[in-house]
Design a protein around this nucleic acid. Sequence first.
RNA 1: GUGGGUGUAGCUCAGUUGGUUAGAGCGCCGGCUUGUGGUGCCGGAGGCCGAGGGUUCGAGCCCCUCUACCCACCCCA
Length: 441
Amino acid sequence: MKVQCLKGFRDYLPEEMLQKNRMVRAVQQVFECHGYPPLMTPALEYSEILLGKYGVEGEMLLYRFRDNGDRDVALRYDLTVPLARVLAEHGEITMPFRRYQIAPVWRAEKPARGRFREFMQCDVDLVGADTAAADAEMLVIGSAVMKELGISGYRIRINHRGILAALCRLAGLTSAGEVEFLRLLDKLDKIGADAFRDQVGQISGIDEAGVESVLKIVMANPGDSRQILAGLEDALGSDPEAVSSIERMSEVLDLVEASGVSEQCHIDPSIARGLSYYTGLVYETFLDSLPGFGSVMSGGRYDGLVGLLAGKDLPAIGISLGLDRLFSAMKELNLLENRSQPADVLVVQFSQALAPASFAAAARLRTAGIATVVYPRDAKLKKQFQFAQKAEIPFVVVIGEDEQSRGTLQLREMDKGSQQEISIDEAIRIIGVELPEGNNQ
RNA sequence: GUGGGUGUAGCUCAGUUGGUUAGAGCGCCGGCUUGUGGUGCCGGAGGCCGAGGGUUCGAGCCCCUCUACCCACCCCA
């Protein structure tokens, strides 16, 4: 037997888990700060719930099997379709409905850098409002999450399905070649205009003059979202769907600007999205320093999805942060705080006879809310101090015979190298003052 | 899934045209005496050389298969 973790899956060792938990807490805090309560759904769904929602490529990536009761089940592929199922199943839910969910999803893809078969998604969705306010709220939350995570070098690229549909029409396409056309459009900045012309030219029914018009629109890069919208208006002004999409994006920009987060939000008509359920605004987020990592946070409006399960449509929009991918990116960029364990204080065990004194002190410290570990053996003090140093525990408490008889303890601050003999109450006070905000795990 | 690359100690890697008991740095453990970390010095443990098969008197090194990882394509979070 070869002992190894399943391909595409990964272990998070304690130090990494500490870092990942910090990210989860930050995301959760931002979501709740925007008025979103949590939702939890099972990892498994009936296959028929998930089938027909992700397009043919997505469907092939489902982990699907028969359970012990011979039910046809699948691991959830995202958090959006399970949300739609909940909405369809629970008629008592009132609109507008907000929820967030931070949970793993599974896709049987070929693993690569920043891409796993099991990964944590952080989703917020707002159901029941097809408005610019709802659209903008997603971008506001997305920006807030990135800020809270300490990431500044990124851009959210925003488009609208209506623009994409209009571009397809401009290129002479009906529904037939659309998927292929949009895929190439999405790759345009990677492959370049010539390769685009070349490959798009193979789609049957394509209009070459139309393709040039599309290129002109998409390649025009004024750098400013308002100017891009103006350009789209000029070029697609005769297409009613495009006009209303442009108007919507313009309203969204108003609100994003009013929220003070327009810096990283950019209209980009070349952004397409793979999942087939999107109907309106769509967006993807790329890190400036790691563009090859792919999108770390994306989503869009999906006004038709709930209807597939509920029988009647409900407008909805959401955004999803790929936490594991972002974790990998931040690790590569050295943006994660390194701390191998959560204790702020090590209480040494001076001798076996003095272990009760150490335990008593530790109990007092913990009652005061200070994360504390006691060294598990009466090893040499040198060894115990080395442990504290390696584990980056900022304080060490020593209680030997002398301290015990005087009712005091030695409090050593590791990075300063300073030490003082004081009472436990004084120690609690000092540790409370010295510890940086949020250091407690 | 397709193409290319790489698997040698916990980690990063050396290892000469195939030739005896496979190396380094870092890390780990112990020591440099008795109540205190970071540096230094000394010592130690730890490898079926990714797995299986083949060629050869002889394979870490050559060939085949498998597997894992990395890069590109593809797609995405």
